[in-house]
Amino acid sequence: MKKLLAIAVIGAAAMGMAMTANAADLIKVGYAQVGHESDWRTANTKNYQDTFTEDNGYSLELVDCDNDHAKQIEAVRNFIQEGLDYIIIAPIQSAGWDTVLQEAQDAGIPVIIADREIDADESLYTAWVGTAPHDEGVTAGKWLGEQLGDKEANILQIEGSVGASAAIGRTEGFQEEADKHDNWKILDSQSGDFTQDGGQQVMESFIKSYEGKFNVVVCQNDNEAYGAMDAMDAAGITYGVDGDVTLISYDATHDGLQYTLDGKFNLDVECNPIQAQTVSDVIQKIQNKEDYEKKTLIKDEAFNAPGIKSEFATEITKDILDKRAY
């Protein structure tokens, strides 16, 4: 089935190339996307489709790799064989890229790594554009420090999937800030696998182990935070702006920000999926033989509940929420 699909895709691409032969001035770009596992990813895909348009001088070939590393490598190989002008990869797995990156280099095709970290020598790819989960963790920590002042923090953390770069970065960044405060204690940190069910289950257990002993809950994505809210509701624990527990989340999806607006989340740190324009800027610079940054960091914002003033986060309003692309 997958092979059939691949053949179909290649066939369609070949036909597409034949048809647009006279439009040879279009920059041919291939994007090996991770998959479609979340609202965030869908927003990211749409952002690429809206940016790399023919009107903007591109022909985009987007392959959805279904979270399958082997499939992604295959997609990149196909891009190389088709002789595209640029290849963009959002690596599903950080390791195992050396061979195929070398192949691209030998073919003289610039490769741009997008969104996630990669475990390969810098000489093997042209540029990197993405967000820094580490900085998101730091932002959450700084915001909490500012809000709590001298008060002590007993923190429970629900981590993302074990080994995911977003989970590792957010854990480390937050830990760095926590280490700066003597009266902060991370009581426990468990994985909720980035899912609502996982968040619910971990929180249920946390409540039993640390009943009445915690005042901060940090969830590494919005879905886990929904689960944590369900568990706290069931146990009669209050959270958010008017509650006993400060609830911090990451991602800033539409639903997550709605909860922030309602005062259920105190803070939601964004992980920005709007990355295509930055990638396009890099490509334009390479095209014009201008200097470009090897690594471009896309700024993540943070939003806190209405009524909270902070230098690290913006107060969320209905207006901001309605204007967001995802």
């Binding site: 074990v162 940190s189 468990q190 994985s191 289950q201 971990v202 257990s205 946390f206 182990s209």
Partner: peptide, 15 residues
């Protein structure tokens, strides 16, 4: 077993 792992606070990577 799962509930016990949560109760013991086993490191997620070792769970």
């Amino acid at each position: 077993i799962t509930t016990t792992m949560y109760a013991l606070g086993v490191d997620p990577a070792q769970a």
